[in-house]
């Protein structure tokens, strides 16, 4: 066997893992207990685990498109833009960027929101620089900006409740509106990050320590979004 044959074998093996056309099963020993396909399924299982690992970072997107479609999107992404290192934490940050290139904006920006949530939960000092804005802006001629609106999952009336009660009910949906990532204040950004989880106003404010944002600023930002219709009160799944 030449080195090139080993390479061909490895390429066939890889293609089989990603369900591409491959002759690798013909290269494997079969036996009465376990077929070659059964044996390869163990390695295929690692790809599935990788997909599930990435999917865990995109819970809002899963609500939006369903688990099956999310897994398909991740697998498509892994095939198109595979990992180059063993660092699996490198996968999720690239996924929203891939979606922005190849899929509906709603899907892409929901993924961006999810990733921002992950960063917010793991990096207390999260700020705007953590979002992959520059790559998105370079994609095409359209002005790609973070254009989130806030959407009430449970009750349209929630917008009239006390601010501290509201975050439990909110999730992000992305529609065209006046919000631009470049012009968001720290207070506005922190609200966006905090809304999907059960975060109360005092907790939002505690996150703003060091960012020179006051409770008044947070309230002002929230009120502005309510008034200009950024916050829309119906379920995201019903809308879709």
């Amino acid at each position: 066997m030449q080195e090139s044959n080993l390479r061909l074998l490895q390429q066939q093996f890889k293609n089989d893992l990603f369900k591409k056309t491959s002759n690798v099963l013909a290269e494997l020993k079969n036996d009465s207990d376990y077929s070659a396909a059964r044996r390869m399924s163990v390695y295929r299982g690692t790809i599935v685990l990788t997909i599930e690992y990435v999917a865990g970072d995109f819970s809002t997107l899963e609500q939006l498109v369903g688990q099956k479609r999310l897994h398909e999107l991740i697998e498509e992404f892994l095939r198109a833009e595979p990992s180059e290192t063993a660092d699996m934490s490198d996968i999720s940050p690239r996924f929203p960027i891939y979606l922005a290139k190849h899929h509906d904006r709603k899907i892409a920006e929901t993924a961006r929101y999810d990733w921002a949530q992950v960063l917010a939960s793991t990096e207390f000092e999260t700020d705007l620089q953590h979002l992959p804005i520059s790559e998105l802006q370079d994609l095409d001629n359209s002005q790609l900006v973070l254009t989130p609106s806030l959407q009430l999952f449970e009750s349209p009336l929630a917008v009239n409740k006390d601010l501290a009660e509201i975050p439990t009910y909110l999730a992000l949906r992305l529609v065209d509106d006046e919000l631009n990532i470049d012009t968001l204040t720290a207070a506005e950004f922190q609200i966006l990050l905090a809304l999907k989880s059960d975060v109360t106003l005092p907790e939002i404010l505690s996150r703003l320590e060091g960012l020179n944002s006051t409770e008044a600023e947070v309230s002002q930002a929230f009120t502005k979004w309510v008034q200009n219709g950024t916050i829309i009160g119906f379920r995201i799944k019903e809308q879709l």
Partner: peptide, 25 residues
């Protein structure tokens, strides 16, 4: 083992064929 080819990391420890040429490689 090998873990990837064509620059792609497959996040798994993958087996090799047990041949003289593989031993040499």
């Amino acid at each position: 083992c090998w873990i990837g080819v064509d620059g792609q990391n497959l996040h798994d420890l993958l087996p090799l064929p047990y041949t003289e040429e593989t031993v040499k490689w």
